[in-house]
């Protein structure tokens, strides 16, 4: 029996090495540090995939857009860090490598950032979605007024629903998801007080199968318009498409998932506040400010699906609602 021990370790090591190789593949960029000089270096650490059509993609797209716009910006991304310890290691790594701005894109990373940021006073950190900078002068915070876009699309949903039942699928009732869900529900109710809004939180950000069954449950309960938030909703969109039920997306443009039934998506353009953060850093500020994207500053945009024939009165209602929220005459509460 003894002599097998070394073999077991060999196998174990081999497997671990393979895993490490596979996980490491998710990283992009990061190498080639000879740039130096003027190049501004931004690193992003985010929980799910760069192209999840949801939360993570929203920041990756934004950073790339701002890099294209301004030029002379180097971008490194570590995605898929749904394990907070992995994210913390990546954040520390980027800070060590001398990145100018390290973005921790996930409210679950706050605790780690609070520990790491004071160790790197010359590095700027940004984290979201959150409003708390921990009183640290090298931490920016950012969040999205996702209730605003939710409210606008809720108003549209109320007009498009024939059954008078609108269904919302959430992950866990916190943060950005809660804001969006509550905003959407308020938008439906404000437009059609008679309408029924059914809300189910699945209890998971990632369980695609459960999200699909949540959509089935909503449709069985009479819903003919659905929405949902977090990366697991791709399962729900599939069910909505099969059953011919309308869908509103959020965080990224979800039209490509089902061009037949996606009416519109609330899209986050974080570059609006990233731009402000970069300007602040340019002025010598390392942090200490919190930012919000909303309809007024153009960080939140309602993107309509061009392939969907949206009735004129619904479109008009949406535009009026947006204008009302921007000028303050409509409250999304």
């Amino acid at each position: 029996m003894r002599r097998t021990t070394s073999m077991r370790w060999l196998v174990f090591t081999a497997v671990v090495a393979l895993v490490a190789a596979a996980c490491g593949g998710g990283d992009e960029g990061g190498g080639g540090t000879e740039g130096g000089g003027e190049t501004f270096r931004i690193a992003v650490v985010a929980p799910s995939a760069s192209n999840d059509l949801a939360f993570t993609q929203s920041i990756v797209d934004a950073v790339n857009r701002i890099a294209d716009e301004r030029g002379n910006i180097e971008v490194a991304i570590t995605d898929g860090t749904f394990v907070v310890e992995d994210a913390a290691a990546a954040i520390r790594d980027y800070a060590n490598q001398g990145y100018d701005l390290v973005i921790a894109h996930g409210s679950q990373y706050g605790g780690s950032l609070q520990e790491i940021a004071p160790e790197f006073p010359d590095t700027s950190f940004a984290w979201g979605t959150a409003a708390d900078t921990f009183g640290l002068d090298n931490v920016f915070a950012y969040e999205a007024a996702s209730n605003e876009g939710g409210y606008v699309m809720g108003a549209m949903a109320a007009m498009l629903s024939e059954s008078g039942v609108v269904g919302i699928i959430g992950p866990i009732e916190v943060g950005d998801a809660k804001l969006y869900v509550d905003g959407f529900a308020a938008g439906v109710k404000a437009t059609d007080p008679e309408a029924t809004v059914n809300i189910n939180y699945t209890g998971s950000f990632s369980d695609v199968g459960l999200a699909a069954e949540a959509a089935e449950a909503q449709i069985a309960a009479g819903a003919d318009v659905l929405t949902g938030t977090a990366q697991m909703v791709v399962g729900a969109v599939g069910v909505a498409k099969d059953k011919g039920v309308l869908w509103f997306g959020t965080q990224s443009n979800q039209t490509s998932l089902a061009p037949e039934i996606v009416v519109a998506s609330q899209v986050y353009h974080w570059e609006v506040i990233l731009s402000e953060i970069l300007d602040a850093i340019g002025r010598g500020e390392k942090g200490g400010t919190s930012y919000e994207i909303d309809l007024a500053n153009g960080g939140i945009v309602i993107e309509y699906n061009e392939q969907f024939e949206l009735p004129d009165d619904v479109k008009q209602k949406a535009e009026e609602t947006i204008a009302g929220i921007v000028d303050g005459s409509i409250s999304t509460e």
Binding site: C23, G26, A49, N51, L53, V234, G238, K241, L257
Partner: peptide, 13 residues
Amino acid sequence: DLLFQKLVGTPRP
């Protein structure tokens, strides 16, 4: 996940 990122990217139905 790696194969999905490299070969597909954005979730496609």
